[in-house]
Design a protein around this nucleic acid. Structure first.
Lengths: 246, 246
DNA sequence: CCGCGCGATTGACGTAGATCAATTTACAAT
DNA sequence: ATTGTAAATTGATCTACGTCAATCGCGCGG
């Protein structure tokens, strides 16, 4: 509906939403807001939609109109080079925002695709700006979210520029663990939503290298891997792969 | 004064500033604002300071209070790993903003150091937020600036994750060329402000690799290099290094 | 003008990860 | 259950870039 673009037709039934009774409140846009202020955010989120696995939420070049908040599910964002090479720029889970890349040129610069069936809140950006002119805490928090994305990107640049394969993968696993923890899931046991190839694309490695590194971690009893199921057996051990180097 | 921190004492005389008569207006924060609106921005920039070569503007961990606009000069930002490895996350020139990383945690997450004697406008962030609650165009433009940084970072991730040494360097040179052009300088002739090692750190390469690639470009008559002086002889040739791959 | 030192260049060699290829495994459709 | 397909694992080899090392050369201070 809202964007009859090249992206797959996202959904079906728009779901009535409310941040007020969303259990992701503390991870998402309304973080740190008073009840009254959350009510202001509520009024600007009027649509929630389902996005099925493999469907795109937006594509590079498509018009920017919304910021998206992941209600449930899992996404990846990626950029493409003309020759077909691509780079996964991030994996996003519940409570995280998508689409910030679109603000700069009014059109998206990357692609966002669901890695599992998901639900997404559509936040009309013009209205978000309007409300954040009125609600100081919302304004500040939104700036923090954007800044956090910049800081995260710098971390990825550090990873891509200086780390070896095993360090990259350990960093990746520890990051997932920490984010699952923040969402109330086990820090040590989870299912990967992405393929080895997608992990590799994110980490600047080939899928074979990812697979070999996972196997080596398993040999060293740091983790156990069975396809997409990961169990972290030795968090300090994984961490020690990072700080000892050089 | 403002931050009696670990950073070198930046300066000397604060200089009276005014965006209104700054020739970088169109590249900097006031871009796209009416005269009246620029006047509002003027009132929040009360300090301009000199930062000498090798001096830090801020360091990771230092308190965040200002966004900085480069009036003149050249900076690099970098992040550090405990073991001493570092990654240059960007090179910034006149009209560009520094310090956006600090918003997320109220303290800076990277380091910013001048690569040549520079002048910097200090923009108290709390006041910037205040004024941008009142000036819609300023608010929107600031969001665009932050978003542009995210998009830029994604481009660097693509470079670090998928490109080969010569492609990275060609991309780097073309990017510098384009930014110098936007500032009224020659697209084809400029002095590098950074060492081979700093270029390498930014591009995820060792300094020897940077040096060799530059020499190869010179052999192929794409550029001429003499120490820090670069002359680009064949822009299409450099570009063609990028799109043909694979 | 001279010498010192950092930055840059260039060469020889080593290696982490890419590439190519062959199975194996999981899961979805029938 | 059976077959088809995509994902994952593992091995053998190749290579782009890193590492180590020897100059070179420019700019700066005395």
């Amino acid at each position: 509906m809202s964007r009859p673009s090249s992206s797959a037709d996202l959904s079906l039934s728009a779901i009535k939403t409310a941040c007020s009774n969303c259990n992701l409140r503390e991870l998402c846009l309304p973080f740190g807001l008073s009840d009254q202020e959350v009510a202001r955010v509520d009024e600007l989120i009027n649509v929630r939609k389902r996005v099925k696995r493999t469907e795109h939420l937006y594509r590079a070049g498509s018009e920017f109109e919304y910021i998206y908040a992941i209600r449930s599910g899992f996404f990846k964002t990626y950029v493409l080079l003309e020759d077909g090479r691509d780079q996964v720029t991030g994996f996003q889970m519940a409570g995280e925002l998508l689409g910030l890349d679109g603000i700069s040129t009014e059109s998206h610069s990357c692609n966002a695709v669901a890695l599992e069936d998901s639900e997404v809140c559509f936040i009309p950006f013009a209205r978000l700006e309007q409300v954040s002119r009125e609600v100081k805490t919302l304004q500040h928090h939104f700036h923090q979210v954007m800044s956090r994305e910049i800081v995260r990107d710098h971390g990825v640049m550090l990873l891509l520029g200086t780390m070896r394969a095993e360090e990259r993968l350990a960093t990746f696993l520890l990051n997932l663990s920490q984010r699952f923890t923040a969402r109330g899931f086990s820090p040590t046991e989870f299912n990967l939503r992405m393929t080895r190839e997608e992990i590799g694309s994110y980490l600047g490695l080939k899928l074979e290298t990812v697979s070999r590194a996972l196997s080596r971690f398993q040999d060293e009893r740091l983790i156990s891997v069975q396809q997409k199921h990961i169990r972290i057996l030795n968090i300090p051990g994984l961490k020690s792969l990072l700080d000892n180097r050089k």
